[in-house]
Design a protein around this nucleic acid. Structure first.
Lengths: 387, 387
DNA sequence: CTGTGGGCAACGTGCCGACAA
DNA sequence: TTGTCGGCACGTTGCCCACAG
């Protein structure tokens, strides 16, 4: 019920649950839409997953530019069997520069559906200890779980929740104690031990539109699944990323990539429309103020303010004139964490620059909607654009 | 004590324990020796580890022949942190064809040291149940464990054994029961649960030359660690293997590979001397009889007899004239398992062909030791050899 | 010689309300 | 409102030997 098969026969998970686990900032471009693939971003994900940069200098692949326009041929959602960590497999088909019209047709924008009723709780020491059960926040229980019969004492019911692997978990849900509270008792501890949950990890429950309960996990950031990867050296992985994309671009054939929302420093498959909009509608200037969204530890979205301090290539030697992380920025709030020091155009949201701090840019682009011919000219520029 | 650091700062494990876990058939060429690297074999290991062949046709890399003569620049021994599965990282430096003399210098043959005193037991249901401890075979306990004081009753002692990650495990060793037997009691069950051992897995104990106890694990073949590999698509991995080796060959630079003895269908880094010997001293003919060593379930070596049924390329299109699995064979004993149907020259050991079944080959190579000049001529042939 | 099972004690698991933050 | 604790019952773990293959 909660999962379907993709054309390749691989199981694709419940989309609502997947997105809830991935976090609200993660959005996947719809199948059939045009996207821009950034090899540099893909490499960053591999380096983060293996916790290792390439040791040897990787050569440039002539047929692989810093951005590759692609058709998103397929997307399937998955979860690691060991950790329940969510990831997506995308099949990309490079679009030749000659097929310009393919880049012009408008994409239907299908927003990723967000779960209607759900809650997410970070587990406490008591939640994960063998001594007791799981304490459900009151509002969470009332919003997501089926209502209890409060005339009984104590009110209790049997809950069944399905995880990302379509496995059902049974819990006894009871409302008791002085003062009264919602608890999961019987069934909780086996769930904790089999999923190997620790204090700091998060559990989320969703009530879907058919009133079925779904169950997901978000591991604490600290215990990053240290991919030992005794299969391939990190060098070979870096080669593999570039060689596969390069070969696909040269032969106009499909290639597959994995996107790990919670491991990757940034998304590296960007909707073409989003990319174009960022490139055209945003006039980037030194000292420009902007906002950018981040996910808080409680899995909420918060926007941080920053200022552009430098515009230029991240890696001028290997990836000249790349749009990937072309902006060096400073943040208003100094955070202990590894807040990104470089961001890409499409990640930021310009805000009015305080008049006294910085004069407005000389040339402001027209904001009226562009006609078709005008858009085509713009595309022409885009294809040749070299900053 | 049991581990050392390699030049790169990575920990290299106790060699004796590593080899005991890898099995007696696994031998690693010594550092500094010349080896032959077979990309096809490497690809086979990747396919076996990911349980997936490449979906797209991988192109040939011009600079990457089917065999690459290399200097084995470094070897470090490792074990997976999750499964304790052993693997080795090898750093290979391709030898240019122009550096012929490098291929002539003799290699010092350093045999891999085999553990002096050790035993290996496949765990029974009783061994892994929570109901009791571990029953040690009598001879094993007497050979490997420190002697007990049999004047006490019951005779007992505390054992400390160090695993591949330099972690110490404490066990109570007691000699009791009617009839008397050796048992590990206290400490055994936590070891079983933390290592997630199941009936059918094997445990091995070594007493090293300093009378320290070492402890290793061999998982049953069935529960192959299903590398989900949400990092790289299998296609990209296949690209990565070839691209990394090809780049190293083209630039005469080092590249790293991982060798998983218990996952790889066959060794793919072969000592040059072994390869040359097999190529020259073995006259291969159709119908030729040979022996080949395999490891039994009890981790003993057994030799099986077979007959060569066909000589030719495994993959004539992509890897023409390759020595990798160039022999198609039939086995005397039909085994249910996936006994290999194709083997390589250096894996087999020719045996006298029964006179009545097949006439001896027309030309038998001289078996007298060759002089230096003669060897150089042979090498000349080798470098140009195209079957 | 060693795998399994019954017996039994000791320990850990897990449900409960009492506090207090 | 909810995290942690003491109390307590009961189920599991784990050590012992008896058997038998």
């Amino acid at each position: 019920v909660s999962s379907t098969m993709d054309p390749g026969g691989r199981r694709s998970l419940n989309s609502e649950l997947w997105h809830a686990c991935a976090g609200s900032l993660v959005s996947l471009p719809p199948v059939g839409s045009r996207v821009v693939y950034f090899p540099q971003g893909h490499i960053e994900q591999v380096a983060a997953s293996t916790q290792k940069e390439a040791d040897v200098p990787i050569p440039n692949y002539p047929s692989l530019p810093s951005r590759l326009f692609c058709l998103l041929d397929n997307v399937s959602l998955h979860a690691d069997h060991e950790t329940d960590e969510v990831y997506a497999q995308m099949t990309l088909l490079p679009i030749q520069n000659s097929e310009k019209e393919a880049l012009l047709a408008p994409d239907s924008v299908i927003p990723n559906k967000q779960p209607s009723e759900y809650f997410c709780k970070t587990l406490t020491a008591s939640d994960t200890s063998t001594h007791g059960g799981f304490s459900i926040p009151r509002r969470a229980a009332e919003k997501v779980f089926p209502p209890l019969d409060f005339t009984k004492s104590p009110p209790a019911q049997e809950l069944v929740a399905r995880d990302l692997h379509d496995q059902d978990w049974h819990f006894r849900h009871i409302y008791r104690g002085q003062p009264r509270r919602h608890l999961l008792t019987t069934g909780w501890s086996v769930f904790v031990s089999i999923k190997r949950l620790q204090a700091g990890d998060s559990v989320l429950f969703i009530r879907d539109d058919k009133d079925h309960l779904l169950l997901g996990i978000r591991r604490a950031n600290r215990q990053q699944s240290v991919m030992p990867s005794s299969v391939l050296s990190s060098d070979s992985m870096h080669f593999g990323v570039l060689a596969a994309a390069s070969h696909a671009a040269a032969t106009s054939s499909r290639f597959k990539i994995f996107y790990n929302p919670r491991q990757s420093p940034s998304e590296f498959v960007i909707p073409l429309a989003k990319y174009q909009k960022a490139l055209y509608n945003t006039q980037v200037t030194l000292g420009m103020r902007f906002r950018m969204a981040f996910e808080t530890e409680e899995s909420n979205v918060r926007k941080y303010m920053g200022t552009i301090t430098c515009i230029g290539d991240l890696d001028p030697a290997r990836w000249p004139k790349s749009d990937w992380r072309s902006l060096k920025v400073g943040w208003d709030e100094s955070i202990a964490g590894d807040r990104q020091l470089r961001v890409s155009l499409w990640e930021i949201e310009p805000t009015p620059t305080p008049f006294l701090l910085c004069p407005p840019p000389v040339a402001l682009r027209s904001k009226r909607p562009r006609g078709m011919q005008e858009e085509e000219d713009a595309l022409e520029m885009l294809m040749k654009k070299s900053h």
